[in-house]
């Protein structure tokens, strides 16, 4: 072999990873690590000092993300990453707060928090690793599991209809909405960077294979899932989120659905409450 360095240099993302905690828990063929890697790349690309970031996760496979990033990071309770992040952001608005969590965490148990943070245009970046199932608990049906897909609690197929996450985010008032797959690693990293810089509530859905708990029951190896991501997706920036339901038979839309400028919660709060108003006399004064 030619030109092979004798001593290998370190991986370029190692300064952002708690290397003493590697290997991480994610299975072989899981896409969470790839999305995490894209997220770290995006943080690096911004050039913003690392101590101006904070990552908050909920519970689940992707909820472990906060445990591997070497910045101030919080692994909270199931579904509560967004209100925790809201507290951080309101108390210290100069921080870039990233929520890295899964579809079950953000959209089932934490669904209410998601729509309200979007409604408020809270200036946080929410990255949802969507593997269409509850991976950590063994592959139960999720709010994102496709209709008729099999899970350990819907063995004859899912009788329900899943959420269309970009549409939900859009309808709730998010001001940046995008969707990528883990295979679109470069687009995903660039999109996360753009979302971090975006003022307001930004939401990025990142599709990820779960070969062990979703793929196994639906006859889909991780490379089969990636093949679908490659062949059955179409990038259409500015597409109508109402058409963004996940149906690989008709094709899945990726891209940036929306980016609009609107005052953030922090900006509005400062504007309206930044200093005491004479008409707000207190009973006690």
């Amino acid at each position: 072999m030619k030109n092979r360095p004798e001593i290998q240099p370190t991986h370029p993302l190692e300064d952002l990873v708690r290397m003493d905690r590697i290997p991480h828990i994610w299975c072989s063929g899981c896409g969470t690590g790839s999305i995490f890697s894209s997220c770290l790349t995006a943080i690096k690309q911004t050039g913003i000092p690392y101590n101006k970031f904070s990552m908050v996760s909920g519970i689940g496979c992707s909820g472990r993300g906060a445990g591997y990033i070497n910045i101030d990071s919080f692994h909270t309770t199931h579904g509560r990453a967004i209100p925790f992040a809201t507290g951080i952001k309101m108390a210290k608005p100069e921080l870039n707060v990233i929520v890295f969590s899964g579809d079950g965490d953000l959209f089932a148990i934490g669904g209410n928090h998601f729509i309200h943070a979007a409604r408020r245009n809270m200036d946080i970046t929410v990255i949802c690793v969507n593997n269409l199932t509850y991976g950590m608990t063994g592959g139960q049906v999720a709010a994102t599991t496709p209709h008729r897909a099999k899970s350990s609690t819907t063995t004859a197929g899912n009788p329900e209809t899943p959420f269309n996450l970009p549409l939900l985010a859009y309808a709730s008032g998010a001001t940046y909405v995008a969707r990528w797959t883990m295979l679109h690693a470069r687009d995903l990293a660039d999109s996360i960077e753009e979302a971090i810089r975006h003022k307001g509530f930004s939401f990025i859905e990142a599709l990820s294979p779960c070969p062990v708990n979703f793929g196994r029951r639906n006859k889909e190896k991780s490379l089969d899932t990636l093949k679908k991501y490659y062949e059955k997706t179409i990038i259409r920036n500015g597409a109508n989120p109402a058409e963004a339901d996940i149906d690989f038979n008709k094709g899945v839309i990726l891209g940036k659905f929306l980016q609009i400028s609107k005052p953030t919660h922090d900006e509005m709060y400062k504007k309206m409450y930044g200093q005491s108003k004479p008409n707000e006399e207190l009973k006690t004064s």
Binding site: P12, I22, W26, A189
Partner: peptide, 28 residues
């Protein structure tokens, strides 16, 4: 393993790898 040393330093493997196990550097 590297098959035929035909790398163009695009970093795609580096970005895609879930394990921080592969990366590319510019070759001298």
């Amino acid at each position: 393993a590297v098959k035929n040393e035909d790398c163009l330093n695009c970093h795609y493997c580096e970005l895609l790898c879930p394990e921080f196990a592969i990366f590319t550097v510019e070759a001298p």
